[in-house]
Nucleic acid binder design. Structure first.
Lengths: 249, 249
DNA sequence: GCCTATCTATCGAACGCTCGTTAGATTTTT
DNA sequence: AAAAATCTAACGAGCGTTCGATAGATAGGC
């Protein structure tokens, strides 16, 4: 425990998705909630908070946040039920700590592409898909929590999750729009396409167990999504399917 | 009340996705759980069960199944808390009633394509996409419940949801495989493609509020998904994106 | 036609238990 | 010894579920 607590910086300011760790997020959370966490010594607070949050994510992701009791969390984190309240002032605050941190790191990473890809829409789109997948893989329990639980959050917290999702969608939309402008994407690309990319990216962590069972690597998944998206952006008029086709009902 | 209760048939045996109603599902549920529902008169039981289930879906879909108390359900359905137990013997049974019925109707509809589409893989694929979207649109709260809540279900019930999903994926896989055999789909179509169709279809009901707000019709959404999927199945070698592309981290 | 016995469907109070949260005592660190 | 961090014990509220009571319909005997 001897290490002095210098570099208490915002954590992971760079766009390097794969480098963001749980510890980074915990330090950032502590800085953000300095007033609700009553433990003043960061040498104590950071590792304790990390144990609490890791246990909270683990319990929430199997059974739901509602179903996780603070007694469960106490047992899993090693602190007493009362002791937990030194790190958050209500169960909802605990939820918000995680949620805000996740949405924030998505924005930080995706808004900061390396200069090498910004000139080419195809490379930029590939990078965004890969960066998103890398980030979610790295912080899997955080994303599972933030976006699978969101539906059951109180209205204010649900708003945060929805806004984050729309920001991501907008970032994809902007890249595609630039590709259309510069002529490398077809002009009549569906305006729905940015919305459809999101579920493809989410499936990687939502159905993570399935893909692990099938030995699908992130590289394979990423390449496949890139292909599907680019096929929809690049395809020539001539070979597009004709007409709306068969309907049910 | 005066109507005699004839046609108590399995309900919606045909593959006509758009014609399946909540009432159909309730009659089917009653037939399936004849031993756990203690109310013997169907003239009473069907409408009561429908009120109970509609209220249960409504409450569960805003706040989660766990968070819905039977006192909430009692208030919303008009029966007393004790009275509810004439229609199910535990809260988990109530969950199972809905879940099994949803997974069953998906299988019934998607496994029964009209003869007009079975000969042409492109038409078949279009039909499956459209039929799935039509079905989920029609029974929106049922699907929201079955597949958004599934993560927090007890193991046995979660298994049901996962199996249903894999069945759907397999049905898509078979159509694509037939298309490859007959030569109208490219031979090197990604084996991941069937898995990626599912999240595209799910987004239609998971993010339903978003698409409604943007005035996206089912026809538009369906056509877009069909285009994206077929672009990935049909695209020629020549214009496929080259190599795995940029990586993050 | 009426009284009685039986059955069906529903009610609402009560049970044992767990929940999130708090306050005061206790331990650990400085 | 003072301060910081944590623990223990308790509170009221709410949970899923049970169960005896009951209103209304139904059927049979006279």
């Amino acid at each position: 425990m001897g290490r002095p607590s210098v570099e208490q910086q915002p954590a992971a300011g760079a766009g390097d998705a794969a480098s963001v760790t749980t510890g980074d997020l915990c330090r950032s959370i502590l800085a953000r909630h300095r007033d609700t966490v009553s433990v003043r010594n960061p040498e104590l607070a950071v590792p304790r908070l990390q144990r609490i949050l890791e246990a909270a994510l683990d319990l929430s992701n199997s059974g739901g946040f509602q179903a996780m009791s603070l007694r469960d969390l106490s047992r899993a984190s090693g602190l007493s039920t009362g002791g937990l309240y030194a790190y958050f002032d209500s169960k909802t605050t605990l939820l918000k700590m995680i949620l805000v941190e996740v949405t924030d790191v998505v924005e930080r990473v995706l808004s900061d592409p390396p200069e090498t890809v910004t000139t080419d829409p195809v490379a930029h789109l590939r990078w965004m898909i890969d960066a998103h997948l890398a980030l979610t893989e790295n912080l899997l329990p955080w994303f599972t929590f933030a976006f699978m639980e969101a539906k059951n959050f109180p209205p204010a917290e649900r708003r945060i999750a929805i806004d984050s999702e729309e920001l991501t969608e907008r970032l994809f939309g902007e890249v595609i729009a630039r590709g259309v402008e510069t002529g490398c994407f077809r002009a009549d690309a569906s305006p729905l396409l940015p919305a459809l990319i999101k579920p493809l990216l989410q499936d990687w962590y939502v159905k993570r167990a399935k893909y692990r069972r099938r030995n699908v690597t992130r590289e394979t998944y990423s390449a496949t999504v890139q292909e599907v998206v680019l096929a929809a952006c690049l395809a020539e008029e001539g070979e597009r399917p004709t007409g709306p086709g068969a309907r049910a009902g």
